[in-house]
Design a protein around this nucleic acid. Structure first.
Length: 407
DNA sequence: TCTGGGGTCCTAGGACCC
DNA sequence: TCTGGGGTCCTAGGACCC
């Protein structure tokens, strides 16, 4: 816990670097991936002030000589896989954070692979030689520090924060450099005169909780004071599937809106079925003409991944949201399915009365023991759920269907 | 300066249960 | 009959990340 062994590896301008790797004419030139909005900007483009998530028109004004490239998702997925293979060959414990970054734990590798700094240097060389992409690595004693270190070392850099240099590195930084502090939190902190990490560190935890809420306040107080006990661990599975579509600013008819919804439901459930997952909570996401947002959600009795079931729920939610949509005009629609279970069929059917629900509770516990905590999401309630009473007799004695997602 | 598509986690109130 | 503490789940929204 007190050694400098955590690596945060982060590919530089990932999508743009893949484009430059695959098309030599783009090397050394400002490259912008995306059109309406900037998905990635090469460092040559960033030198002109272009940033991710910026509107395409503004990017073009800032950097008229930039080359705009349409995103090639399959190429990025393939490059990411290749990079993660290098990660996996470098250290035994790799925790992916996104398509282009991960934590690696170099603990206990001193005798076989060298110091963390040597491992990091070799990792950078291997990724460049084997995949052809530049990558930056931050090395520190904690995750929070390693993450900040890699950001400070970008692009194409390596920064090791020594154990005795942590506070000197961390405390002068502006608060928004901390992982988890975005514009809203930074504005709140600045509103209370807190500009730097050091100032936050010297503020009482209770005061921070007053400013940003309980969880964020505790988290902020801990990492500002350089306390971060989180270990690197192999990532657990995803928690939701989503699909969304921007509609543009022109008014939409209900028919067109429904057609979009059908497309979204088809797209997202296709991915869920391919992954063998199903979910119980359907969330309809909306964005309006003034860029305000809203969500509407509904939790189904059974987990689902069939297009029709998800679409039906989404249509219900959309119908309920129509008054708001008519008032504010909708510019984006999305469907997210959360509360996931995996696709294995587990059928609980009792061929006798169970008025107390105890037998069913025991059966649910048994399912949990065998399939893990996500297998049953409402264990204690399930036995008394009126929906279950209607459901159980109808399914008693039915053979198991492998495509059935019911728990 | 207007903004794409994919995610994660937290909060707060109400319903309901023991 | 009234009251309380403690807990889960659902819904809606907010913030943040890449």
């Amino acid at each position: 816990m007190d050694e400098v062994t955590i690596l945060h590896a982060d590919l530089d301008a990932f999508f743009a670097s893949v484009e430059q790797r695959d098309d030599p004419r783009l090397r050394g030139r400002p490259v912008i991936v995306g059109g309406g909005v900037v998905l990635a900007a090469s460092y040559e483009a960033r030198a002109h002030g272009v940033r991710g998530a910026m509107g395409g028109a503004r990017a073009r004004r800032l950097c008229s000589q930039a080359v705009f490239v349409q995103p090639r998702w399959p190429a990025y997925v393939e490059a990411s896989k290749a990079v993660f293979e290098v990660f996996d060959r470098t250290t035994p414990v790799v925790e992916p954070l996104s398509i282009d970054e991960a934590f690696l734990d170099a603990r206990g590798l001193e005798h076989i692979a060298g110091t963390p700094a040597q491992i990091a240097a070799r990792l950078r060389r291997d990724v460049l030689e084997q995949v052809g992409l530049p990558i930056t690595v931050g090395v520190a004693r904690t995750k929070a520090l390693a993450k900040v270190a890699s950001a400070a070392a970008k692009p194409d850099g390596l920064l090791v924060v020594p154990a005795d240099g942590e506070i000197a590195f961390l405390h002068p930084l502006p608060v928004e450099r901390l992982w988890g502090v975005g514009p809203a939190t930074a504005a709140k902190l600045r509103g209370h005169g807190l500009q730097t990490v050091g100032q936050v560190a010297r503020t009482a935890e209770a005061a921070l909780i007053q400013i940003v809420g309980r969880a964020a306040g505790r988290h902020l107080h801990a990492i500002a004071n350089n306390r971060d006990p989180r270990r690197v661990r192999a990532r657990r599975g995803r928690r939701s599937f989503g699909s969304q579509s921007a509609l543009g600013r022109s008014p939409t008819t209900p028919e067109a809106l429904d057609a979009v919804l059908v497309g979204l439901a088809d797209r997202v459930t296709r991915r869920m079925r391919a992954a063998g997952r199903a979910g119980r909570t359907v969330v309809l996401r909306l964005r309006f003409g003034d860029y305000s947002r809203a969500t509407r959600s509904q939790t189904l009795f059974e987990a689902a991944n069939a297009t029709e079931a998800i679409l039906a729920a989404a249509r219900t939610l959309l119908a309920a949201a129509m008054p708001v949509i008519e008032r504010r005009g909708v510019t984006l629609v999305g469907i997210t399915i959360s509360n996931l279970v995996d696709g294995r069929a587990v059928q609980l059917a009792l061929p006798f009365e169970d008025p107390t629900g105890l037998v069913l509770d025991a059966a649910v516990d048994d399912v949990r023991d065998r399939f893990g905590p996500t297998a049953v999401t409402r264990a204690t309630q399930l036995g008394r759920d009126p929906g279950l009473a209607a459901w159980l007799p109808a399914h008693a004695g039915r053979p198991m269907d492998p495509s059935d997602t019911r728990r």
